[in-house]
Design a protein around this nucleic acid. Sequence first.
DNA 1: CGATTTTTAGAGTAATTACTCTAGGAGTCA
DNA 2: TGACTCCTAGAGTAATTACTCTAAAAATCG
Lengths: 232, 232
Amino acid sequence: MTDTKTRILDTALNLFNRAGERNVTTNHIAEGLGISPGNLYYHYRNKAAIVAALFERYQEQIRDLLTVPEGPLTWQDKMRYFEGILESMWQARFLHRDLAHFLHQDAELRRRYKVFVQDSLERGLVIYRSLRDSGLIQASDEELRGLLVNTWVLAASWPGFTHGLNPDATGDEALDRTLLRQGIYQIICLEAPYLRGEALDHLDAMKQEFRTGDTTMDLLFAAAEAPPARRA
Amino acid sequence: MTDTKTRILDTALNLFNRAGERNVTTNHIAEGLGISPGNLYYHYRNKAAIVAALFERYQEQIRDLLTVPEGPLTWQDKMRYFEGILESMWQARFLHRDLAHFLHQDAELRRRYKVFVQDSLERGLVIYRSLRDSGLIQASDEELRGLLVNTWVLAASWPGFTHGLNPDATGDEALDRTLLRQGIYQIICLEAPYLRGEALDHLDAMKQEFRTGDTTMDLLFAAAEAPPARRA
DNA sequence: CGATTTTTAGAGTAATTACTCTAGGAGTCA
DNA sequence: TGACTCCTAGAGTAATTACTCTAAAAATCG
C-alpha cells in the first residue's frame, strides 16, 4: 500500500473533482480513506497544504509533458502530447475550477502559478516553432503567440466548461473521456487554419478521430441543426 | 436614490468581483451599503438568491447584446458587439469564476444556464452566417461551430484567467480595461484566419486597436522575447 | 527486549457565518 | 389622526468546519 501522504492526495483529488474543493471538508477526506482527522493533520498542516501539494503535482506533470524530445515532430505526435496535457488538466480539473480562489488566498501560490504559465507558454512556443521549421505550420511569431494563449486558456477552461454543462453525470468515466476528446477537437479547430503540408493531409483524419459529434456538440447546439444529422 | 433591492445587487456584484463570492459574507454586503443584515434578508431570502438575481441580470445583458439588428453587418461592427459582450462578462466575472460551484449547488440554475449557452451559441451562429453571406468570412458550418465554441469558452474564461495572473491590482480600472481589450485581441486572433474581403483589409487596424502588447503579453511571455521589443 | 520515533485515533474547541426574530420607524391613504 | 403596509435595525442562534491536543498503537533500532 502506498504511503498515507500520497493516499491523502489521491482521495482529496477525487473528492475535490467530484464535488468541488469548497464542498469537501477535511473530515470528508479523512473519512474517505478511513483515517482520523487528527491523522490527516499529522501529514498536512492544513487544508491549503493539501491543495498546494496537488497543485505542485499537477504543475510537474504539465512541465514534463511540455518537454518534448529532440528532433522533428509530426503534427499528429504533437497532438498526442496535447492529449496528455488535457488529460492532466482534466485530472486536476478542480484546480482550474477554483483556481481564482486559491490564487486569491495565497500570494506564494500566485507567484508560482504565474511562472508556471509563462514557462508553459514558452515551452509551447518552442514546439510550435519546431513545427513551423518542419513546414507543418505557417504563421508569424505574433500569430503563434496569439494561438498559444488561446490554446492554453481553452485547454485550462475546457474541463470546467463541459463539467458545468453536464454535472449530473459525475464520475461517468465514459462521458468524461468523450468530453475530453471533444476538447482535443476544439484545439484542432484552433490550429487548423495554420496547418500546411503533411499536417494538412492528416487534418480530416484527426478531426474524425476526436470529434464526438452526437454527444457533445448536440449538447451545445441544441436540436436546431446537427452537422450531418438525420432529421426524423 | 435607486431602490434597496438593486443597490444590494450592485454592492454584492462589486464585492464578489473583488474578493470572490466565497469570501464575501452577507454581513459584508449589508455593511457595504450601510444597511443591517436583517434588512438584507428582507429583500433577498438568502445569499443564493442574490447570486441568482445577478445571474439573471447577466444573462439578459448577453441575450440583448447577441440580438443584432437586421441587415448586413461589417466585421468591425460585429467586433464592437463582441466588445460589449466581453464587457458584460467582465462585469460579472465572479460568476464565471465560481460558476462550477453555483451550478453544482442549484439544479434549476444548471438547467437555465445550459439553455442560455445553447441560445447564445445559436445567436452567434446566426451572426457568423450573416457575415459569411456578406463575404466577410469564409468557413464551413462545421468550422463556424468549432470557432463559435472556442470564442465562447475564451470569452467566458478570459476574465478569470487574467485576473488570476494579476490579482494584486484589484480595482485598478485602467488595468482592467487593458486586460479586457487584450481579450478582444485574442478573439480577433481566433477569427483572423477565416476573414475575407473587407474584413481582411481592416484586420491589421483592428489588431492594432486592441493589442495591448507591453502590458499583457509581456505578462505572459516573460522576458524571453517580446514582439518588436528593444533588447537592451 | 527496551527505548525512541513515527504514525494513528478521536474527542473537543474556537471561530465563522448564514440566517432568524422581534420590535420599531416611515410612508401612505382613509 | 389612526390604521395599515412597507421597510429597517440589530442582537442573537444554530450549524458548520478547520484545526488542536492528548494519548496510545505501531514501527524502528540498539
